[in-house]
Design a protein around this nucleic acid. Structure first.
Lengths: 344, 344
DNA sequence: TATAATGATGCAATCGGTTGCACCTGCAAT
DNA sequence: ATTGCAGGTGCAACCGATTGCATCATTATA
């Protein structure tokens, strides 16, 4: 109902017989304003229900007080946990958060970056779409000294010096594969995703390194690419059934696909882990629910968000957008029934 | 590096020997400006890389072009799917999206509302925290004619006429319970959450109605309250083991708790569904992964987001914030192994 | 030919907060 | 008594886009 006009600093000034400049300064605790005046102004502002108009302030200061986040997709337990971590840090610092998703497309990613640039975000946290190969589209921001932090999916554009928060995906892939080898697997299938520059590419590299190191030849038939969602299981099962010689181990680059494939394999009569041992990636809730429970790689999602956001905050505080920083969080292999063939 | 000044309409005006007003009008396709002039201005703007300054525009127009969303938590497959649906609609309409989470606390919810009000959101989409009992804290917005749409967790404050997008939780609870009864269950345990005003309260009501209707007395021992997360299973198992007479059916108000409890029960030697039949709620990914697969209630998360956002958009378009609208989406019981005792 | 009507553009105020500089007061130092 | 200085406050010009109204050039009408 009441479309009353907003209270402005001018209204406050008038009531107190002061100037708007004094009010403005007082509200921001400017030292030049007498303590007593400041207090009078503040209580008056309070009682009149004054709310700063952010547009006026932003216009003048050329600041937006807003941080942007771009994710591949919202619908991911991992990603939503990361955002949760980010949100916590950002709000505490008094920034607003604008979140958007690229839905795994480079085009959307570019559009989102432009949109965020347009609303003058002061910093960006981004996890790249699988289609993204270079970081050129971030130049709009970086050329204006707007700090950018990449997390999780950071691509392989090593040319560019950017701040990143990641885990060592190659090592994790290596650990997962090595574990399968020590469990006696000889033919390990890798279920991943087709982009060499992504986290999945790194996980694949770890897989290959582990095999090579153990004198096992890489078999292209055993590298299956898929989009790693709930449909991965049935699609991959078909490919496996087509194989002359079946695999005896599987390293899937995420839990969702691992679990979905495990379900299909069991339905088909394969025994897990006796016939086929399986390792996933993420330590999501499902990994504890399937039977047998899924061996997987754990890494801290909420913390990754927190750390990425904190880095960004410190870049903003110190205006040191130049000093790049590369945080590598620890991961850990969690061994469960899906891969455990030998009693220790 | 290049902290070049932004291009403004004045810059464009100068180059073309026109006034800023003409440029401003041309860029917004004002009919008073000659077609040819409009085109000249637009191409010039393009070639100079002009970007509208949203603060100046917002200040003058007193609009923010921003929609706020408040969720109980990000880390929920359901909620992130809803946001995904919301995002899609909102972006298409050219709005920005600011998302925040109440982390299930009424205090945070209030703070978030204030913060969103402060940045002058033009509309709000909110799913209430479980602690929220009334809608008084939305008055800041509604009293300024800022439209609000509630979705999923809408509370029971029927006094207030607001737009809501929900499913019929009572009916769904009723359906789930009735299904268990038809499968021969006599002692059905309800695993829910302690707030009568929430969706869970409604689901509980459906449970009670179904029992009563079938002449089964309500047993308070069989109503278990928990926060319905991954730890629900072990906590609830303890309570079940303490029961003199064990339940032969369980209706859990979400999949996460259902699945986690099922896992614990199986570990304890109960056969599902022979000893205990289980029904969950949400049709999340896990419900298809557990064994036996979980009978559950399906309802469309992404669509719920889309519809909620569309309602909001139409309220904004038609300035009809008054006409409340209550959308009830369809749910469906999906019968799977966890509850199927009788061959049809 | 005078005049009204229409089309196209510019002027200047406005949105609300911020800030460099000018100004005033009072008091200490000279 | 004059000068200097610091502490407080106000003036007015921003920030960039929008818009009611005035203005001017054209063209249609009487």
């Amino acid at each position: 109902m009441s479309q009353k006009k907003e209270i402005t600093i001018y209204d406050i000034a008038r009531k107190l017989n002061l100037s708007a400049s004094t009010v403005s300064r007082a509200l921001r605790d400017h030292p030049a304003i007498k303590q007593e005046t400041t207090e009078r102004i503040k209580t008056m502002a309070e009682s009149m229900g004054y709310q700063q108009n952010p547009f006026a302030s932003n216009l003048r200061m050329n600041r937006s007080n807003t941080i942007g986040v771009i994710l591949p997709r919202f619908e991911s337990t991992f990603m939503s946990a990361v955002v949760s971590g980010i949100e916590h840090v950002i709000r505490n610092k008094g920034y607003n958060l604008v979140v958007s998703q690229s839905t795994d497309s480079i085009k959307n990613e570019k559009d989102n970056i432009k949109a965020l640039f347009n609303i003058r975000v002061e910093g960006l946290l981004i996890s790249l779409s699988p289609e993204t190969e270079t970081l050129g589209h971030l130049d709009v921001l970086t050329s204006k000294n707007i700090p950018v932090v990449l997390f999780d999916r950071v691509g392989a554009d090593t040319e560019r010096r950017v701040t990143t928060v990641v885990i060592n995906n190659r090592q994790a892939g290596y650990d997962a594969t090595t574990h399968l080898l020590t469990q006696g697997c000889k033919r390990i299938l890798y279920l991943g995703e087709n982009q060499t520059c992504s986290v999945f590419g790194e996980r694949a590299r770890g897989y290959k390194d582990a095999l090579t190191e153990n004198g096992i030849a890489l078999d292209p038939e055993l590298m299956v690419y898929d989009n790693l969602n709930e449909g991965s299981g049935s699609r991959t099962l078909k490919k496996i059934l087509d194989l002359e010689e079946k695999p005896d181990g599987i390293f899937a680059a995420n839990d969702v696909s691992a679990v979905s494939l495990m379900t299909e394999l069991k339905r088909q009569g394969f025994r897990i882990p006796e016939d086929i041992a399986i390792v996933g990636f993420n330590n999501g809730h499902v990994s504890r629910i399937v039977e047998p429970a899924l061996t997987t790689i754990n890494y801290p999602a909420v913390e990754m968000g927190r750390i990425a956001a904190s880095s960004l905050m410190s870049m903003l505080d110190h205006k040191s957008h130049v000093a790049t920083q590369n945080v590598v969080l620890k991961h850990a292999l969690i061994v469960r029934g899906s891969s455990l063939r030998k009693k220790k």
